[in-house]
Amino acid sequence: MAKTTEANLTLKPKKRLFHREKQLNRSMAGNTLLFILMGICGVFMVFPLFYMVNQSLKPLDELFKYPPTILVHHPTFSNFVDLFFAMSDSWVPMTRYILNTFLITGGGVLGHIIIASLAAYPLAKHTFPGKKILFSMVVLSMMFSYTVTQIPNYMIISWLHINNTYLALIVPAWQYGMGLYLMKQFMEQIPDSLIESARLDGASELRVFVSIIMPNVKPAWLTLAIFQFQQMWGNTGSMFLRSEQLKPFQYAVQQIAAGGAARAGVAQAAQLLIAAVPITFFLICQSNILETMTSSGLKD
């Protein structure tokens, strides 16, 4: 197999060395094959996104055309304009909904990352009695169907008197098992010597956690942020939030969209708007995952 040693000329000299390292054991034929495979699969995968954008640009008469057309013939932004007007004359001002979303989603994501990572570090790197049991409880808990735990959960939230507050959505989100599990798995990979040397320098455990552990598992918590954001975004809180002033933005947009046939175009625009936020968040997080690892070559 011929090794390709051609360096990518578009890269800066400093990065070229890194790039060449990555080209070890890569054959041209293999690369071509993989790219073709990616292309074919990519078309299938991206279809819902494409469809969503396409639908939102259709004027009302095209949306109801029978037989349905695939591609939009007369693209228009009128759906977005209508959505904007519908949003601007809502009973509770839209900015309030946006603030709610910011608090609920932001609080849920940030709090979960902090609390779950804080617990994941001892589980990954310390030894203490009860560690194994606690950890396997978390992993196993993910296998219990949440449909049936909803009722006990609702009762607990009422009992804690946090029903109809932001906390009813935020606090339970802090303890999702997946986040702890993900963080623990990544922290396991950090070499012990790195932690040990920090301890010898007199760093406290919290200090080790903040300045050694978290920077080294940046890809993990960025990924977790994506998952958690999606989770919080998808949860419109209709189970716990009764006051209209507390409801999140995506809930309000869904209400506008659910206006029957006359609002069909608005509904398509709303769908795109609701999907666009997690997608933007996704892209920000994903491009930062890359950035970390090229800048820090820190490993043992």
Binding site: L118, A119, L123, S141, Q175, L206
Partner: peptide
Amino acid sequence: MIAPYFFLFFFF
């Protein structure tokens, strides 16, 4: 360090 998480985990 694990207390906050497992406290909530117990309840929810």
